[in-house]
Nucleic acid binder design. Sequence first.
DNA 1: GTGGTCTAGACCACG
DNA 2: GTGGTCTAGACCACA
Lengths: 130, 130, 130, 130
Amino acid sequence: MLIRIDFESDVPIYEQLRDQIVIGIADGSLKPNEALPSVRRMSADIGIHAHTVNKSYAFLRDEGYIIIDRRSGCKVAANLPKTDKAFTKAIKDKLAPIAAEAACHGMKARDFGELCEEMLEKFGEKKEEV
Amino acid sequence: MLIRIDFESDVPIYEQLRDQIVIGIADGSLKPNEALPSVRRMSADIGIHAHTVNKSYAFLRDEGYIIIDRRSGCKVAANLPKTDKAFTKAIKDKLAPIAAEAACHGMKARDFGELCEEMLEKFGEKKEEV
Amino acid sequence: MLIRIDFESDVPIYEQLRDQIVIGIADGSLKPNEALPSVRRMSADIGIHAHTVNKSYAFLRDEGYIIIDRRSGCKVAANLPKTDKAFTKAIKDKLAPIAAEAACHGMKARDFGELCEEMLEKFGEKKEEV
Amino acid sequence: MLIRIDFESDVPIYEQLRDQIVIGIADGSLKPNEALPSVRRMSADIGIHAHTVNKSYAFLRDEGYIIIDRRSGCKVAANLPKTDKAFTKAIKDKLAPIAAEAACHGMKARDFGELCEEMLEKFGEKKEEV
DNA sequence: GTGGTCTAGACCACG
DNA sequence: GTGGTCTAGACCACA
């Protein structure tokens, strides 16, 4: 699980870290029940404050991606959350501005759909390799 | 062109406004060459400071969505930017964390692709109605 | 004398007009003693307020490029101002930020000098053609 | 790094500040990777509002001169932007009105070229001293 | 009328 | 501590 943070990005570091862990789970680099590096370890590895790692982990826990156990550390949740109505709505809200940008730039609905589909497929492929 | 700002949201107001204008252009509520409300007018309408509106407009101008004409204020660009390599990459970067979330929630690539495709189609439909 | 104004530019229109007239004098499109279009005519031709043309003309007069005669209209000055110490200093001040940009972008002094020299030579060539 | 702002000038303060920082980078007063004063510090030092400094910094960032690091504030970019076609064109556009003025004042192409060359050379000399 | 600049000062997120 | 956001309101240049 390689984490790459762009310190010059306008995206907060804790959010970049959270995103990359979610991507790691999606593509199988991180498997259910697999242990995550401890907060201290992770912060040392990528050179950021433990505080910041903590924030990312807390978000991931609240979203159901990971389990934080005071004694045994963190691990990826065995049962990842499922797609439900609320989740679909949340996804749509996040997608709306991006889809609008694509539409303004003259992208065809079909092409956009395929591009999105491919992105998910890639996660699936990587997962099988692992 | 109805603008709705969520003052509770952690998304900056100027970004919400920017997003909604892009969506407005995408769905045809705002047509190329159509005039936008003046900075003062918009700020009064939605109850935010003129500075904030200004910032949104400046972003939209830099991204090629609107034109700020020295004589007459702001209007939607006649020639919206086209899809190019850089844009596709930017879109993919924005999409990645969302796609990963969907994957983690067990969404099928096919379903995600269709969901995305439908979002763009909706813009097209609304546009034709207008 | 063809005038082209970019209404979307952040450079004020009166300044664009002033600049283009100076360029016209430099390249010989406008010769000493030649009459300029009246304020009214110019404003109608390029579709801007007479007020704005007036401002440009007033600047040009103050800088010694043109003569404004209440009765006979405007004409290019017969004796254009000469290079003196004050002018050289003014030029340098305007040049400084541009030169600094060039330096930061790794441009060689020699190349920058040649680029500048060529720009002036072009004016001279056009002048001879006229 | 001494900053001098002319509050009487018609050139916006944020632009004066931006220009002076670019000049500072050009002449070596500010070296790549060197930290810039924080927004607050700079605003206190030169007696202008933090907003105004912020605007200058944002411009410099967009132009590639400085890096805004989420952790430690601002520093001069390690890899300054290079001269490309777009940059050369931008330079020419900025140079055109100045060159025209020089031509009107009877300056020889050769002299103008040398004057420009010398300006860049000065930056180089100062840089070596540092 | 328009957008742009600047100030003053509050508040927040980030690290 | 840092930069970023937002408000409030003054003032200006432009057209």
